[in-house]
Structures are given as C-alpha cells and as structure tokens.
C-alpha cells in the first residue's frame, strides 16, 4: 500500500499530462459530434426525402464501422488524399464523426417523441418548418434528449482512450508507456483506472440528477 502511494507520487505528474489530453480529446469530439449530430438529425426529420435518405445512409455507415478503424482511416488514409492532420486533430475529428451518429439518433428520437398535436397546432397557426422546430419542437425535445446526452458524454470520455491507437498521448497511452517502462503495472494501471473514475463519476452523478429532474418536470 505504501508502495502504491510512493509510485503514485512519482508518476502522477506524467499521468496528469495524459489527463489533460484526455479532456481535450473528449471536449473537442463532444462539441464536433453534437454539431454534426444535429445536422444529421435535422436532415432526417426534414420534409425532404433526399436529405432524409442521405442522413440515414451517413448515420448507418458510421455506426457500422468500428471507431478504431475510423480513427486509423482519418490518421493514415487522409494524408494519402492530401490532408495531413496531427494525431490530436485526427482523434478529435475521428471521434467526433463516430459519435455524431449516436448523437443524431438521440436528437431524432427526442424530436420524434414530441406529440404530433404540437406540429398540427404550429402548422395551423401558419408556422413554417424552421419556425416550428425552433419555437415549439426543439425546446420540448431538449428535456428528452438531455439524459441520454449525458450518457453519451460518459461514453465519449472512456472512448477517448481509443485515441491512443493513433499515438495521442492521452491518459491510457501515458499509463501504458509508464507501466511498460517501469514494469509497475499494478500501481500505474490502478492509478489510470482511478483517474478515469475521478473524471467519470461526477458525470455519472450529474446524469442521474438530470434524469430525476426531467422526470419531475413531467
């Protein structure tokens, strides 16, 4: 036990550098996946069949390919097409795109859950589609979308570890490097796990609180 704390004291600074990149990757890909997810979702619920089909195709395509493969594609294949990215950029873009599919499905489910009567009331007042989405549907859909969105955030925090496969020195990779060079696997990996828990448990508690809040609001 005393050994653990000694090791912790020694390796924590390095692991914290990893934590920083973990946070950067998570936040960056969260923002990108949210924006893209909204685009796919709005295309899907639009009145235009072409947009619906394109969106469905993109979302299903993304969902059908493992995240690691998508990351490899962006990091290794893009340069062959003339686009060079740093590992960090590739990680944020790759995870952002990969998770945009799940975000899109969540947004779509929230929007489609809104009572059809709301659409009828909006239309009968003369509202166009965009106005109706902005003033009536989306404000109500937010309540339904938030708890699963929180869960997606937690998943993205953990999946940021996949960035290590394309050399991003986030927490998992830092842990692997330190452990394999010191052979102190038990201490180091325990620390890595604890650090992830320290980041995710508050998020988990927050999502639980959100879910209870949304239930009360009904």
């Amino acid at each position: 036990m005393a050994k653990f704390f000694a090791d912790a004291h020694e390796f924590l600074p390095i692991l914290l550098q990893g934590v920083w990149l973990t946070i950067v990757v998570t936040v960056g890909s969260l923002i990108l996946s949210t924006l893209l997810g909204m685009v796919w979702a709005l295309m899907r619920v639009s009145r235009l069949r072409v947009l619906q089909r394109v969106s469905a195709g993109i979302v299903n395509g993304i969902r059908g390919i493992p995240i690691i493969v998508q990351l490899f594609y962006i990091y290794f294949v893009m340069p062959e097409l003339g686009v060079t990215l740093t590992a960090l950029q590739a990680a944020i873009i790759g995870l952002g795109i990969a998770y945009s599919a799940y975000q899109a499905e969540n947004f779509r489910a929230g929007i489609e859950a809104i009572d059809k009567g709301q659409i009828e009331a909006s239309e009968s007042l003369g509202m166009g589609w965009a106005l109706m989405m902005r003033r009536v549907i989306l404000p109500q859909a937010v309540k339904i979308i938030l708890p699963p969105y929180g869960n997606i955030m937690i998943m993205m925090l953990k999946d940021s570890s996949q960035a290590s496969t394309i050399t991003v020195a986030e927490l998992t990779m830092k842990g692997q490097l330190v452990a394999s060079s010191t052979f102190k696997y038990t201490s180091v990996l325990t620390m890595v796990a604890l650090l992830y828990l320290i980041m995710s448990v508050p998020l988990i508690l927050f999502v639980g609180w959100l879910e209870r809040r949304m239930q009360q609001a009904k």
Binding site: D115, Q118, E120, A121, S124, L125, G126, M127, R135
Partner: peptide, 29 residues
C-alpha cells in the same frame, strides 16, 4: 401560410404549447 393565418383551428386535445404560459401561447402566432 396565408390561408392558415386567416383560418384558425381549435383541437379536441387542445394542443397548447406546454412549455409556454397561457399568455405566451396566445402571443406566439
């Protein structure tokens, strides 16, 4: 749109906007 702004509708299940107050429902249109 022009037809719908000249002919209003009242529904069996009211279809009020639940996230808006009574006043906000009335001024929305």
């Amino acid at each position: 749109k022009s037809i719908r702004t000249q002919i209003s509708m009242v529904f069996q299940r009211f279809n009020l906007f639940p996230h808006r107050t009574a006043l906000e429902n009335v001024i929305e249109g």
